[in-house]
Amino acid sequence: MQDERTHWLEMLMTTHGSAILRFCALQLKDVKLAEDAAQEVFLKAWKARDGFQGRSSERTWLYRIAINTCRDYQRTGWFRWVDRRITPEDLLHRGQEECRFDSLPVTQAVQTLPPKWRTAVYLRYCEGMKLADVASLQGVSQATVKRRLAKAAAMLREKLKGWYDE
C-alpha cells in the first residue's frame, strides 16, 4: 500500500514538479524559497491523498494547494520559522547554476503585479487553463478573472512597452 502511495507521489512530482515550482517561484520571487514551498505542496498532497476526491484534476488540486501554500509563505515573517532542512547533500548541489530573475524581464514584470493577478496570468497564459478553471481555483467568478487579466495586461503593456512593440 505504502509502495503504491509512494509511486503515486513520484509520478505526481515527475509530472507536475517543474510547473508547481515555477508557479511558486513566480509568486515568492525567490527560487530557494520556492523550492521549499513546492516540496511542501507535495508533502501536503501526500498527506491529503485520501481526501482527494477526484472531482478536479490532480493538476488543479495541486494548484489549489500551491496557491494556499504560497499565500502562507507570503504572510510577513512566516518563512523565518520555516525549517529549511539544508543537508550536506543539498549544499553540494546548491552550487549549480542559480536562476537570477533580473535576467528574465517578462518574469520580473509579471512579479510586480499584485499576487492574485500574477496567479491568474500564470494559470491562464503559462498553463493554458480555461477561464472557468482559473476562476474556480481563485474562488471568484470568470468576470473577476477577466478583469484581473485585463488589468494585468494593461499594466504589463506599460511596463514592457518596447518588448510588446517588437
Binding site: 517543474s18 508547481i20 517561484a25 543539498d90 536562476c99 528574465l104
Partner: peptide, 15 residues
C-alpha cells in the same frame, strides 16, 4: 524564461 527553473531529482529526494 521560467523553463530555467526545474524540479530536480534532488527536490524529489528531499520530499
Amino acid at each position: 524564461e521560467l523553463s530555467l527553473i526545474n524540479w530536480t531529482q534532488r527536490d524529489q529526494n528531499a520530499v
